[in-house]
């Protein structure tokens, strides 16, 4: 089944992007994790009807994509994959919240539609920030940074294994569904009954495969501690990066900067 296989290769591609050597890639992973956290908290803390004041936040993903030479289309495709889930979450807002918030000429915009668009904007921002973080840092380094920032090891190791398990599961699902498809002669096979058995087998197979991979990791000295080949320390560049972005996000959140920009144009 091509879509599953393509999705797996696509997901692995994200980790490969982290091998770059741009000024963003070489920064200590803790600085990038902290900036992403400040960014996400700033964005999600806005009022549910806020849209306009969220727009300046797009400067962050745009600048990092350019500086880190990340492929913008690839990132856009990743975000597009997530958007149906976001739309599902906010789908009923326009039905339940019909109070008119804005009137543009004859067109009345209800609170429901405004909150749906606000949700979409916030999701675009936060999801792109997460992809950019992994694309410039790598998943293992993100886990390592979380651990160095004080997250208990048990959580970070679980996170790392979950990431690996998703890849193993997707690989196995790809193989199993291809085998099923080839013997279904273009029909539905045995329908839901075959899917029940398929899912059970998948669980057992991925369990065993994950166990073998874990054994291979143990055989090569894995003790639950993270090691990444790129060595970095939290220096002046990291401090500048963290303070610069954090100040900008907090200013945008507390509206002082957007007010200033607004005042310039008025």
């Amino acid at each position: 089944m091509k879509p599953i296989n393509a999705a797996v290769v696509d997901l692995k591609q994200l980790d490969l992007l982290a091998d770059g050597d741009s000024s963003i890639h070489t920064l200590d992973s803790r600085a990038k994790v902290l900036v992403t956290l400040v960014f996400i908290v700033s964005v999600v803390s806005f009022d549910r009807y806020e849209i306009i004041r969220l727009l300046p936040f797009f400067v962050y993903p745009a600048v990092i994509i350019v500086l880190a030479s990340l492929p913008p289309l690839y990132i856009a495709r990743k975000i597009a994959l997530v958007s149906p889930f976001i739309i599902m979450v906010g789908l009923f807002n326009p039905l339940f919240d019909r109070d008119v918030l804005y009137q543009i000429g004859q067109v009345e915009i209800s609170g429901g539609w405004t909150s749906l668009f606000s949700l979409l904007t916030r999701s675009l921002l936060t999801v792109s920030a997460a992809f950019i973080l992994v694309g410039t840092t790598g998943f293992t380094a993100v886990c390592q940074a979380l651990q160095r920032l004080g997250t208990p090891q048990i959580f970070t190791v679980q996170l790392l294994f979950l990431h690996r398990y998703i890849l193993v599961l997707a690989d196995e699902t790809d193989r199993a569904s291809r085998a099923r498809e080839l013997r279904s002669c273009g029909k539905k096979g045995l329908g839901v009954t075959s899917f029940g058995s398929l899912t059970g087998h998948l669980l057992l197979r991925t369990w065993l495969q994950a166990d073998r991979i874990h054994t291979a990791m143990l055989a090569r000295g894995f003790t639950g501690r993270f090691h990444v080949s790129r060595q970095s320390c939290f220096g002046a560049n990291e401090l500048l990066y963290l303070l610069g972005w954090s100040l900008l996000f907090i200013s945008l959140r507390t509206a002082t900067l957007s007010d200033t920009i607004g005042a310039l144009f008025s």
Binding site: K12, T140, R212, I213, T215, A216
Partner: peptide, 8 residues
């Protein structure tokens, strides 16, 4: 495939 699990 059981032994190779890193990105590169």
């Amino acid at each position: 495939d059981d032994q190779l699990f890193m990105p590169t």
